[in-house]
């Protein structure tokens, strides 16, 4: 007992190999933040709808043409809270600006007809440095059939096993895609007014595309449709 410090150190110097996987922890945190972003996007969408109804009852919301007028405010995108850590930047073959422009140019052919942004003249991607990914969000449809859509394009996590965003087991559906891509689809919140359908496409070109739609179940596009969008050759980060 004379040298308790030495005894304590000796008592703990036979550590077995650790089961702690730092990469696994970072991946877990990244998944958590993605889920949170999609949930936040849904919250923003609901607030936007409520706000529009509150401010101008009975009046239709701004059309895409109105939003794209020259007096429209500069296009801004909300980013993640600053308390969250940045992730290591994955080397890509093009600059972030080039990737944003290229991915944005792909969107009109991929998105459902009538997809629009409430903040920007057009639906466009932006780079999210804290997640090291590219994101876009849009509104589709009108009235009760209106739903929000979010797309996240990110570099594939090495060794990642295809998985659904929110569900496991029978609630998670695997959809094989031409070219070897695997889409994992789930639908959560079916006991709410606006369930969320999520499709994560794990592509052979080392790109992962997550698409989430939130709205009335009848209005949501089927998972196969979202899987097709996520498998589009243009939505790659390695052109």
């Amino acid at each position: 007992m004379d040298d308790l410090s030495t005894l304590l150190r000796a008592a703990s110097d036979n550590a077995p190999p650790t089961g702690i996987d730092l990469d696994g922890l970072i991946t877990l945190d990244r998944r958590r933040r993605r889920t949170r972003w999609v949930t936040a996007a849904a919250a923003v969408a609901v607030i936007a709808v409520l706000g529009a109804v509150h401010l101008s009852p009975g009046r239709p919301r701004s059309s895409p043409a109105e939003v794209s007028s020259p007096s429209a405010a500069p296009c801004t995108h909300a980013t993640m809270p600053s308390s969250l850590p940045d992730q290591p930047v994955t080397p890509l073959p093009e600059t972030q600006e080039a990737a944003v422009a290229r991915l944005t140019a792909e969107l009109p052919a991929l998105l459902p007809a009538g997809a629009r942004s409430t903040r920007c003249p057009r639906v466009e991607f932006y780079y999210e440095p804290k997640g090291d990914d590219y994101r876009a969000s849009a509104w589709v449809g009108t009235g009760k059939d209106e739903y929000s859509l979010a797309i996240m394009v990110s570099p594939a996590t090495p060794g990642a096993v295809p998985h659904c965003l929110n569900a496991d087991g029978e609630a998670c559906t695997r959809i094989g895609q031409p070219g070897g891509a695997i889409a994992m689809a789930d639908l959560v919140g079916t006991d709410t007014a606006k369930p969320q359908r999520s499709v994560t496409v794990f592509r052979p070109d080392r790109t992962t595309v997550l698409i989430a739609v939130i709205g009335r179940t009848k209005a949501l596009p089927p998972a196969t449709r979202l899987a097709t969008i996520g498998s589009a050759p243009g939505l790659t980060l390695y052109p």
Partner: peptide, 18 residues
């Protein structure tokens, strides 16, 4: 011990910037 450290490291990761 590994479980405790994993939990602590995950919390550290979430608040790393601060």
């Amino acid at each position: 011990a590994d479980d405790l450290v994993s939990t602590a490291l995950l919390k550290l990761l979430r608040h790393w910037r601060r």
